[in-house]
Write a protein that binds this DNA or RNA. Structure first.
Lengths: 178, 178
DNA sequence: CGCGGTTTACCGTCCAGCCGGTACAGTCTA
DNA sequence: TAGACTGTACCGGCTGGACGGTAAACCGCG
């Protein structure tokens, strides 16, 4: 029904974004992939921008629940670092495209939408680092962990090769050691 | 003349990208800002994609010379880290838009252009880390420095607030300590 | 129970505008 | 004379969004 269709649309948007980049995202393409007509899509998201905002919020929620789960399994700090290395091969593609999409509509029309998108983007990363922040008391150590995690993620984003796993494991141990 | 106009075009592209994001980049807008006619622009860059490729290459060259200069002043490792925190306020905007632009044309038409863009992107970051890599012999330490630098840059990219300068200075010292 | 009205969820079509790229004739300068 | 443009006119395709339906679900009420 309602929320189901919404999620199908968002999933379709995510897939198209990951597979073909931002230019391949058209209302028609998303609608087709979601098994909905263009009109139906517009019913759920009154504009393309609203659709992206919806996706951003969904990502934020996913990250929030993921981090809670990972923190329970590996501990908040280690979980934060492990979450930084993309598991699915197209995850990085998806996220660069998302950045692309958000940044693409910049400034031109509604500064309001833009501000919302920027805020959601920040929220996503806050959701990621929040459990770690809560668990690591030494601010210097927390900052170090935070930046290494972000660096790892960014490294994957721009297409640099992944560092040697053994080296990474050693780095994690060193940095997490108290 | 020739190369001068080329650079004016690239500078105009950069400005428009930083100010208005990817959608505001049109051949006409860039040409106008560069003080060139649209025909003149197309004379230098036969297509929009070629223009972006040119910009990517220019950024890579800038980074290369910047890093050489910074390495001479602060040392390669410290220079690398200092270079990670954006000085100009719109630098982050410019770079996210550039990522956006590169990622935007994904897959659809010419995989060749796409591959070139991805490679140039990687080259930019290799150019950034190269002097540091050469100066730091311990691979674990090098990796740590590298990821912290990337993390710092990424943090600025997504719009997270800059960390406390004092904390950052302490972190730099700790991480750079032999 | 049944019935009118309202809301929800969606469909399919149409249009206006924009943008990259082409074409080409002409101009300035060295 | 050639290279480095200018300026204009044009085209074809695509895309966001508006719009006018519509079928089914729901809801109060007599």
């Amino acid at each position: 029904m309602a929320t189901d269709t919404r999620q199908r649309i968002l999933a379709a948007l995510r897939d198209i974004l990951a597979a073909g980049g931002n230019t391949s995202v058209t209302l028609e393409a998303v609608a087709a992939k979601a098994g909905v007509s263009k009109g139906g899509l517009l019913y759920h998201f009154p504009s393309k921008a609203a659709m992206y905002l919806g996706l951003l919020a969904a990502v934020r929620d996913t990250v929030t629940t993921d981090m809670a789960e990972v923190a329970g399994r590996s501990g908040a700090a280690r979980g934060f670092l492990e979450y930084a290395v993309p598991t699915a091969p197209d995850e990085a593609d998806f996220f660069t495209s998302l950045i692309a999409a958000v940044r693409t509509g910049q400034e031109s029309e509604s500064a309001e939408v833009d501000a919302q998108a920027a805020e959601l983007m920040v929220d996503i990363f806050r959701a990621w680092e929040a459990p770690m922040r809560g668990a690591v008391t030494d601010p210097l150590q927390a900052e170090q962990i935070r930046l290494i995690g972000f660096g790892l993620y960014f490294s994957a984003l721009v297409g640099l090769p992944q560092p040697d796993p053994a080296l990474l494991a050693a780095l994690f141990d060193r940095v997490l050691a108290r």
